[in-house]
Design a protein around this nucleic acid. Sequence first.
DNA 1: AACGTTTTTGGGAACGTTTGCACACTTTTT
DNA 2: AAAAAGTGTGCAAACGTTCCCAAAAACGTT
Lengths: 338, 338
Amino acid sequence: MRFETSTIKDIAKALGLSTSTVSRALRDRYEISEETKKLVLAYAEKVNYRANPIARSLKERRSYSIGIIVSEIANNFFSQVINGIESIAYDKDYHVIIAQSHESYKQEKLNVEHLASRSIDGLLIALSSETQDIDYLRQLYAKGLPIVFFDRVPGDFETHKVIANNFKGSFDATEHLILSGKRTIAHLTNSENLSITKERLAGYQAALAKYHIEFRPELVKYCQHGGMHSAELEQAVKELLPLKPDGIFIASDRLTTGCIMALKKTNPEVAHQIAIAGFTNSNLVELFSPSLTSVKQPAFEMGQVATELLISMIEAKRPVTEFETKVLDTELVRMAKR
Amino acid sequence: MRFETSTIKDIAKALGLSTSTVSRALRDRYEISEETKKLVLAYAEKVNYRANPIARSLKERRSYSIGIIVSEIANNFFSQVINGIESIAYDKDYHVIIAQSHESYKQEKLNVEHLASRSIDGLLIALSSETQDIDYLRQLYAKGLPIVFFDRVPGDFETHKVIANNFKGSFDATEHLILSGKRTIAHLTNSENLSITKERLAGYQAALAKYHIEFRPELVKYCQHGGMHSAELEQAVKELLPLKPDGIFIASDRLTTGCIMALKKTNPEVAHQIAIAGFTNSNLVELFSPSLTSVKQPAFEMGQVATELLISMIEAKRPVTEFETKVLDTELVRMAKR
DNA sequence: AACGTTTTTGGGAACGTTTGCACACTTTTT
DNA sequence: AAAAAGTGTGCAAACGTTCCCAAAAACGTT
């Protein structure tokens, strides 16, 4: 089963022109006379000519596509980021190829390499919670693949990055819990090697410090798999509850929903006693019970900004050497009344 | 900024062979001696040779990629379907390009045509709730683009289709409401022109009939935009409530969550009095309040089955003329106790 | 020793574009 | 009137593959 579509050659033959003339006419080059252009354009329209992007890619040595790696598209935060990415990419005539790491380093690497072999022109990536070794990315980068990190960014990699103001977001959420009278505030967070984990922890600590509440390390629980396994969360909850927290600040989308589920499942009676604040971009948060205060990241905008940066790298004539890290503000959405 | 990678030509030159020999050796053809194969393979490994998929696509006139159109990846149902699709596609060495219609006919058409011009080998599509005219799909299909529909399928299009057992799913959900004592059961559903709308309505009606409950058309509300606009839902809720329903059966994911939100927002006091049953694949359903009984579609499996069918079409030597419509069973997840 | 077979290799066209260069024809400048 | 400049077009190579066809090498048979 195969398409047959008309090519530049067909048009050239039909019109008694050369392929070069047709090609130039279609791309509206100045060398071609208005007359010829009109002729070609009209005929192309008539036969519904579509340039073959594959041939073009081969010739121009680029694919007009950018790769995206996120842990899960089912995660509202990431799907919003992707929407932001698409909004810019389609505008600039790129298309996007999305792949999921499912928080696995192996999957992430496999996907990136698959995309790279597919000749993507650039890569947008949020690291998986497992990822520690990013040498494979360095290699691709050294070979000339533009990369922009967002959300979960590595510290030691010189390129553009786009992140939320994790410190402030965490500070605000924690402060909110404190101001509503909580004093024993636990912190449930992602794997320690993620950038966001460190920043969010710092925000949490700063808020405690501001109100002279002692920081107790045992109130902080790290989840290696970012909440992909419910067992991990139930374990964390089990370890936390004996410390009698009256509030809990949770550092990521998946963990937030997962934690509430674990709480409801294992200790339904206390689920409603503990005040919860957490990062989440779920658009269903109004439906949750217990309800919670959420820190929303500007996901759509993050996708847009990252894509603009990436495309600027892709289209730069000379290698880019000045990099920026854009920091976008989060929004605190206070808990709905019960 | 450009990659430089080694090509078959480079290998041929380095080894003093011809490109044809190298090409054949790499693809492990029988004509090439073991010795040469080893030589080539070893060298290819050494220089980390990766075949250029673009060149291959151009030569073979196919791209090894399949297009996916869904209304929204943020919708859990669709993201699960996509996971199913990927699981099969990657296995068979295809990659996938995802595009979103956001329930808009215009977007859908634009995306499909964009994908088609990108030389996808086949298309997997769930129609947008706005879509009525699928001539553009017919044209592509006639030109040789294999298409498989899933979830929202058109009636009059001869190709493979994969759907859930919408009738039975709806019947079960409605019956569940009846068995828990409800008698005035409203039905909130999608745009009338969707296949799923008709099937789900029929299931609802059949359940009513079985228990000799009169079908009242005024209890059925159609949402043209599939719940993409909250105003639409609030309007529907507003019209429904005066009829004093004691139960409501909702026919799609987005509508289910949207309806509960509208209910909570406009009439919080009655939100908990009405029993709710609805289609949804949200994995957060346990957190919802009010809680609900949900009809879960076998989304992952649906993606897998659709992909297998599509790839079989793509790889068929002769045009396929025998088509099947696979129907997969849904699962009723009863409401958690309050 | 001459011939046929079989196995292994190479030459070169093709896929559909883009683009540097050359060419022919006009028009302007000197 | 010749030279220079400008305009519009075509030729052909290139991008990295695959594959048809032919050629060369190796072997066996008479």
